[in-house]
Amino acid sequence: MLHIKCPHCGMRSQNEFAYGGDASVKRPELNKEISDLEWDNFVYLRKSLRGKHLELWQHISGCRQWFKVQRDTATHEIFKTLKANEDI
């Protein structure tokens, strides 16, 4: 069982959260001309590292906020959790 510290509510069990994947993905800016390839990469390409991974989680059975978690994908150790608008 993972224990995740929601930046808004504190430490809770994994059961309260939903996973949102790679947090380093940035949506292309609105009204900016981009190529099909850039759009495809935004839709389909995700980092999937072995080791420290910055990812999104949602506190779905709590405050329902999205936030970032830095977690090791090999050991599942959680190093840090941040609010969605914070950078590591």
């Binding site: 069982m1 993972l2 069990s13 994994q14 059961n15 939903a18 996973y19 994947g21 790679d22 999937s48 590292l49 072995r50 991974h53 990812e55 977690r71 994908t73 090999a74 050991t75 599942h76």
Partner: peptide, 13 residues
Amino acid sequence: DGYNSYAQRGNLP
């Protein structure tokens, strides 16, 4: 299990 992992071992939930 629902999150990226290389652990080859799972979680109980």
